[in-house]
Amino acid sequence: MSLTVIPTALPEVLIIEPKVFGDERGFFMESFNARAFAEATGVHRTFVQDNHSRSARGVLRGLHYQIQNPQGKLLRVTSGEVYDVAVDLRRSSPNFGKWVGVALSEANKRQLWVPEGFAHGFVVTSAFADVLYKTTDYWYPEHERSLLWSDPALGIDWPLSGAPILAQKDQNGSRLKAAETFS
């Protein structure tokens, strides 16, 4: 399996482009290969859970993280398109509080690696989107936190044409200055 790894403004957050073989019949790609992922990225993780979410246009999910049992996430979109965001929440990092955003879509087949210590979220920019992602730890609702998606201290430039559709926990997310973060 051949992967192209594209760095982002946050060095630990990586865009992964899998090798896609296509012809008039359609396409084939390995969506994940542990050996190829580790060789291409230098990231050696065991994924323990796969998740699948479907959301409509304008739904914004996030910015989520687990303060204990933090999760690394490898995300991809199988239908539609999202604008995917990662925020560095490691106080010891020179990039603490900085974010990066990437378009993930059915068409570009890109994946995004968001390591532990980062908050993650996305907004759906197509009619709907199916997001599949692998995690390095299980979901522990008692440890889940939500960073306020619209915190001016973050200044995330979400591609929105109006107010997003939010879950209650995301409406009530913490601002960066009050959020529980990582050392």
Score class of each variant (00 low, 15 high):
residue 51 N to G: 06
residue 19 K to C: 11
residue 19 K to F: 14
residue 30 E to P: 03
residue 49 Q to L: 12
residue 115 P to H: 01
residue 7 P to E: 14
residue 123 V to C: 03
residue 124 V to W: 07
residue 152 P to E: 09
residue 2 S to V: 14
residue 75 L to N: 07
residue 145 R to I: 01
residue 122 F to H: 01
residue 35 R to L: 07
residue 121 G to C: 15
residue 161 S to E: 14
residue 128 F to Y: 06
residue 75 L to Q: 08
residue 143 H to I: 00
residue 161 S to D: 12
residue 17 E to I: 10
residue 53 S to D: 06
residue 161 S to Y: 05
residue 158 W to G: 03
residue 90 R to C: 11
residue 80 G to N: 08
residue 35 R to W: 07
residue 181 T to Q: 03
residue 119 A to R: 04
residue 157 D to Q: 15
residue 22 G to T: 15
residue 177 K to S: 02
residue 81 E to L: 01
residue 37 F to W: 13
residue 7 P to M: 09
residue 33 N to W: 14
residue 142 E to K: 13
residue 2 S to M: 15
residue 2 S to G: 13
residue 117 G to P: 10
residue 131 V to P: 00
residue 105 S to I: 13
residue 135 T to H: 06
residue 95 N to W: 10
residue 118 F to E: 01
residue 183 S to T: 06
residue 103 A to M: 08
residue 183 S to N: 13
residue 18 P to H: 14
residue 67 I to S: 09
residue 166 L to V: 01
residue 15 I to K: 11
residue 40 A to I: 08
residue 23 D to W: 11
residue 86 A to V: 09
residue 75 L to Y: 05
residue 92 S to G: 14
residue 45 R to Q: 11
residue 86 A to P: 02
residue 9 A to M: 10
residue 63 L to S: 00
residue 11 P to L: 11
residue 63 L to R: 02
residue 157 D to M: 12
residue 73 K to Q: 09
residue 101 G to H: 09
residue 125 T to Y: 02
residue 146 S to L: 00
residue 167 A to D: 06
residue 93 S to Q: 08
residue 108 N to V: 11
residue 112 L to S: 07
residue 21 F to M: 14
residue 90 R to L: 13
residue 33 N to P: 04
residue 101 G to F: 11
residue 182 F to W: 11
residue 97 G to E: 10
residue 139 W to I: 07
residue 71 Q to S: 04
residue 173 G to M: 01
residue 60 L to H: 08
residue 137 D to N: 14
residue 116 E to R: 13
residue 20 V to K: 06
residue 182 F to Q: 03
residue 130 D to H: 12
residue 115 P to A: 02
residue 106 E to Y: 06
residue 72 G to A: 15
residue 160 L to A: 03
residue 111 Q to H: 12
residue 49 Q to Y: 13
residue 130 D to M: 01
residue 6 I to S: 09
residue 131 V to W: 03
residue 134 K to N: 05
residue 140 Y to P: 01
residue 69 N to K: 14
residue 182 F to I: 08
residue 43 V to T: 06
residue 14 L to F: 07
residue 34 A to W: 05
residue 133 Y to K: 03
residue 5 V to L: 04
residue 98 K to R: 15
residue 110 R to F: 00
residue 123 V to F: 04
residue 69 N to S: 12
residue 88 D to F: 00
residue 77 V to R: 05
residue 71 Q to I: 09
residue 170 D to C: 11
residue 130 D to L: 05
residue 116 E to P: 03
residue 99 W to A: 06
residue 58 G to Q: 13
residue 58 G to H: 14
residue 150 S to Q: 12
residue 75 L to W: 00
residue 179 A to N: 02
residue 46 T to S: 11
residue 56 A to N: 14
residue 139 W to S: 12
residue 46 T to D: 14
residue 36 A to P: 01
residue 115 P to K: 01
residue 36 A to L: 13
residue 27 F to G: 01
residue 4 T to R: 15
residue 82 V to I: 15
residue 36 A to T: 12
residue 96 F to T: 02
residue 159 P to Q: 05
